[in-house]
Design a protein around this nucleic acid. Structure first.
Lengths: 144, 144
DNA sequence: CGGTATCCTCGCCGATACTG
DNA sequence: CAGTATCGGCGAGGATACCG
């Protein structure tokens, strides 16, 4: 890494256009990519597509709870970042298939590792929630 | 009552309290954990703490752009899930240290793998954004 | 079937002020 | 220094209606 000097946040962000990203720089485009990938529905879409190609409606069923609007929006963002491939079949009724690109499979792999860990570790996490913490009494009126 | 039958989303969610989580079930607590971990600031806090113990203000500096309120809120959520340990030192001026628990180090490891990949792959992602997509003309007025 | 456009609500989040 | 309390905007996102 060539040094760019300290305090050059903007320069850092701009340089990252051609080189590596830096999530600690608020202006770096990698922040946007991270937001897409880790978004509420982005995570679930990526993991679902890892199992194979899906139609819009199949995806909607798989990612339970998502609205059409948000699914569409999420897919557009992921397609824009080059993670998702969208194939329109000019038939009646219309059919659109969504699948991961090779770039998408890479990122989805990391996302799945995270989600798998969470699903597996849920018992330990729920157990940890039971333990007493260092924030005992919120002081004052505890409830309205 | 062993079996819950099909379509038992709620039953599924409840059962997961004792067993493995299921992110595809909207009511499963794992959804909440995922939201904490993948939240805007949660990701950056976890990765930062992976480098070692930090004081509140040090963390605030490291995670550039976060407000006191959001940092505090994020830390409380992560502490509640058992990922972050909060240690108050009864001295003047007050001093509070934040560090990862072993559970936290595990999840943070996965998060860091993801963020590292994004930072490294940013050039490829930005390049992919340049390519023509299957959504050529949005039809109608393209601009306001 | 697979979207997009519009409306409207809700809660995220920043700014500010105050406390231990 | 390390927070909590409160207010307010603004944008994410759900509901609905409609189009190719």
């Amino acid at each position: 890494m060539a040094r760019t000097g300290r305090g050059g946040r903007l320069a850092e962000a701009l340089r990252s256009q051609a080189g590596r990203g830096d999530l600690h720089a608020p202006a770096c485009p990698s922040r946007g990519v991270l937001d897409h990938v880790t978004s509420r529905w982005g995570v679930l879409v990526l993991v679902s597509l890892l199992e194979g190609t899906h139609r819009f409606s199949a995806l909607r069923r798989k990612v339970a709870g998502v609205s059409e609007k948000m699914l569409s929006q999420t897919l557009q963002a992921l397609e824009h970042d080059g993670f998702v491939r969208r194939e329109v079949h000019p038939v009646i009724p219309p059919r659109v298939d969504y699948s991961l690109t090779s770039l998408g499979r890479e990122v989805a792999g990391h996302v799945e590792a995270l989600t798998d860990w969470i699903e597996d570790s849920l018992p330990r996490i729920l157990a940890a929630r039971e333990e007493p913490k260092s924030r005992p009494a919120p002081a004052g009126r505890a409830r309205a």
